[in-house]
């Protein structure tokens, strides 16, 4: 898209979510709270999702993602606060809301004893449509599992189940797609393929809200909310979240990783040290810490093949830093 500024033309704003542009908002949530018994599942959660946005909730199990999604899909009532989806209140307008939602619950909720084809036909049927009517919307995804259309859903691999579940959630052409942990328990390849499908769906204009415990998937979203213990720690674009890390970050490597970790934990100038694959990510207390200081500290302790380099933080680094802050 191009904008031409001639003379005094008022500045054109990008379609950002603002109070004066309600038509652009798909989901609006404010002050949402919910508890089960004496356990707080959600505590004062507020956020907006713009139309056509791919919005991710990133957080571990038990953070409150499923509770939030069940409230958004009108399956649970909030204790406090309000939520609207496409202008429909999740409590009052639940009937209308259910017409426009596509929902994929945490476990792939398919009928194991029905075939691929039969599952799709059934889920189309309960939305009063047929697989043929909206075929082009699911074609991209469904064509990958179509060779197995006679196979029972229970006999599909995790990745194929996931594709079928997504096809079933899409078959009635929903305006908003709510996906609760679609990539949990699925292998790395299927996860990547799944996010590629979501990216293509997003370009068709559908609003997608998705949750995941895998931090590395955050970069696939337009914006993400980092969620922990029923509260949102941060909402922003993945790039902005990384930029706001606000501290230096060092990746350290040496031959004996286990001993290296223990030694870095004892390092006086260190704030935190956590293993990330073959490296250990060290957050120093003082920004001005020099790599040479880390190296000499480790050399004195007899480490070999030491490598220290400054790196950009990942979403996971940010998440852990925020967890530490909130403690």
């Amino acid at each position: 898209m191009c904008f031409y500024f001639i003379g005094n033309t008022p500045p054109v704003s990008l379609p950002l979510v603002t109070e004066n542009m309600p038509s652009n908002i798909s989901i609006q949530v404010s002050g949402l709270a919910r508890h089960f018994g004496n356990k707080t599942a959600l505590n004062d959660v507020s956020f907006d999702v713009a139309k056509g946005e791919l919005f991710g909730f990133i957080g571990p199990d038990g953070a409150g993602k499923t509770t939030l999604f069940r409230i958004l899909t009108s399956l649970l009532l909030p204790d406090a606060g309000s939520a609207t989806v496409e202008g429909l209140d999740v409590v009052k307008d639940y009937k209308k809301l259910r017409e426009i939602l596509g929902y994929m619950p945490g476990r792939f909720s398919l009928y194991q004893d029905l075939s691929v084809e039969e599952n799709l036909r059934f889920f189309a049927g309960i939305f009063r449509t047929t697989p043929e009517a909206n075929y082009d919307l699911v074609k991209d995804i469904y064509s990958q599992i179509e060779p197995f259309r006679k196979r029972k859903a229970g006999k599909l691999s995790g990745g194929m189940k996931q594709k079928l579940a997504l096809s079933c959630a899409l078959i009635h052409k929903p305006e908003v797609l709510v996906l609760d942990e679609p990539t949990t328990g699925v292998d790395a390849v299927s996860r990547i393929e799944f996010w590629e499908m979501l990216a293509r769906l997003r370009s068709s204009g559908i609003t997608i809200v998705v949750s995941t415990p895998y931090m590395d998937e955050a970069s696939r979203c337009d914006r993400v909310a980092l969620i922990q213990n029923g509260g949102i720690m941060s909402i922003d674009t993945p790039a902005a979240i990384r930029k706001n890390f606000g501290r230096a970050l060092w990746a350290v490597k040496a031959d004996d990783a286990y001993r290296l970790l223990a030694d870095l934990r004892r390092f006086k100038a260190g704030r935190s040290a956590f293993p990330f694959g073959e490296y250990i990510h060290l957050v120093p207390d003082d920004e001005r810490l020099k790599p040479a200081e880390i190296e000499s500290y480790l050399q004195a302790l007899g480490h070999s093949h030491i490598s220290v380099r400054q790196i950009e933080p990942s979403i996971e680094d940010c998440f852990m830093e925020m967890m530490k802050d909130s403690e």
């Binding site: 571990p60 199990d61 956590f274």
Partner: peptide, 17 residues
């Protein structure tokens, strides 16, 4: 068998320790 599925990133690392 997938001992750390869904666990938060800090606990996941403590688990590995």
């Amino acid at each position: 068998d997938e001992p750390t599925g869904g666990v938060d990133p800090i606990t996941r690392r403590q688990f590995w320790e």
